[in-house]
């Protein structure tokens, strides 16, 4: 009898206990679908992405959408106030969300957000970094790893070039950004575990 759904891709963390697990799931799906569509539109605009096989485009998006959303929606996590803004625009404090069952994932999201925001990336840098997050040749189920790898290398070179140009005295930013990739994987794994728990025990 879950009463809360502490994902900011909802309008609210409160779940109507009268509703069935299926209808809760349907509403949740309707809430996050526009954000997923935006990720797909973003992917289509990455030069070279549409040249990958359709199978690999889907595989990359399936594996990486959550990580892209984490990067895109860091603004929902207010590190100073320790609040999370849900889709309705309403803010909830970490303490309130924790009382609703949010645990390690929430803490890790704040840690990631704080470190990423500290880099003060421009919109262009953030966009290119997001493309690097999405186009990862080590995702499972890819049929043409070499093509994905070639695109990944092109994007990483472009990111390094942009960071070097914009921050000539702070090349460590590029290294720090690449080190965010395993952090995102870790968040993705934690999120997947939560989803599995939710699906099995809605």
């Amino acid at each position: 009898n879950r009463m809360h759904l502490v994902c900011p891709m909802n309008t609210s963390p409160y779940v109507d206990p009268q509703k069935s697990g299926h209808s809760i799931w349907e509403e949740f799906s309707m809430s996050f679908t526009p954000a997923v569509r935006e990720v797909v539109e973003f992917a289509k605009r990455i030069p070279g992405f549409k040249d990958l096989s359709q199978h690999d485009q889907v595989s990359l998006l399936k594996a990486g959408t959550f990580e892209v959303l984490v990067v895109r929606f860091t603004s929902l996590f207010n590190v100073k106030e320790r609040t999370v803004t849900f889709l309705s625009g309403r803010k909830y404090s970490v303490e309130v969300l924790r009382s609703m069952g949010a645990g390690d994932l929430l803490n890790s999201m704040f840690d990631f957000t704080e470190k990423l925001q500290a880099l003060n990336l421009s919109e262009e840098e953030m966009s290119l970094f997001t493309a690097v997050v999405l186009v990862s040749a080590d995702r499972s189920g890819l049929e043409n790893v070499n093509s994905v790898e070639a695109l990944q290398e092109t994007l990483i070179r472009a990111l390094r070039s942009l960071i070097t140009k914009n921050h000539p005295n702070e090349i460590a930013i590029f290294t720090k950004l690449l080190l965010k990739l395993p952090d995102l994987r870790s968040l993705n794994n934690m999120h997947s575990e939560q989803l599995l728990a939710f699906k099995v025990h809605p």
Binding site: V36, T65, L195
Partner: peptide, 27 residues
């Protein structure tokens, strides 16, 4: 339930968005 992305219906949303689903446009 071994694939959380499939559980979410993510693959379906992704495929439709990639292909520019006609049914959704009619809606």
């Amino acid at each position: 339930f071994s694939d959380p992305a499939s559980n979410l219906g993510l693959e379906d949303i992704i495929r439709k968005a990639l292909m520019g689903n006609m049914e959704e446009k009619q809606e």
